[in-house]
């Protein structure tokens, strides 16, 4: 029944899965680059932007095709609209990850302290993205709603990073620049997690047709 619509939805699911995997690969690479401050690597990751952008375009094209040829309604329509929005979130997440590689361009090493909390934050943010996509794949409301809690944890970690960096910066004015760029990196990850939470909001919209703000 409605084979072509079902096929299209499968294509969308696979594209979003690919996007998630690419964003994960990029964020992990960018964090590694931040640890090593390797500028050649940084340029490599910055160029990876294209990969995610291309996938986003494919999602858009498939959504437009399905709307034009299948006239989806109700839940079918919500799924397609949500796929479009989720792909926009993932594309932004890719940009934010790459923002970290861009930070590496500007930081004068060596690092004032070993990086612990930022990689930890990245791990948590990535886990949220995976969970959001899993919730989307299985239409699991609980998984989606749970993202709000995890987002609070990431926000908390971010505040802590800012506090710690402020203390170091006030003691060692010579690393002021570095401290500011590391704060940026933390901020990017905090935003990354917000976008992961948006994925959860879309899952709730698909299943209930209601808009819920998980980012409060």
């Amino acid at each position: 029944m409605r084979q072509s619509l079902n096929d299209g939805q499968l294509i969308l699911n696979n594209l979003l899965k690919d996007m998630g995997q690419e964003v994960e690969r990029i964020l992990q690479g960018c964090i590694k680059t931040l640890k090593s401050l390797d500028r050649t690597q940084a340029e490599y990751w910055i160029a990876q932007d294209q990969v995610v952008n291309n996938l986003e375009r494919q999602v858009d094209d498939e959504c437009v095709r399905l709307i034009a040829t299948q006239q989806p309604v109700a839940k079918d329509l919500r799924k397609i609209i949500s796929a479009m929005k989720i792909s926009t979130d993932l594309e932004r997440m890719g940009d934010l990850a790459i923002g970290i590689a861009k930070v590496v361009r500007r930081i004068e090493g060596p690092l004032c302290k070993p990086l612990i909390d930022i990689p930890l934050m990245a791990e948590k943010a990535l886990a949220m993205m995976r969970q959001g996509l899993e919730a989307y794949r299985t239409e699991d409301m609980e998984l989606a709603q749970n993202l709000a809690l995890q987002d609070d944890a990431v926000d908390h970690l971010y505040n802590q990073i800012v506090r710690d960096l402020l203390v170091i910066m006030s003691q060692k004015p010579e690393i002021l620049d570095q401290g500011m760029y590391l704060t940026f990196a933390g901020r990017y990850l905090e935003r990354f997690a917000d976008h992961a939470t948006n994925i959860g909001e879309n899952v709730i919209y698909i299943t209930t047709a209601e808009r819920k703000d998980l980012n409060k």
Partner: peptide, 9 residues
Amino acid sequence: TEDYITGRF
């Protein structure tokens, strides 16, 4: 209703 309008009846 949903099954009917989405063509999955």
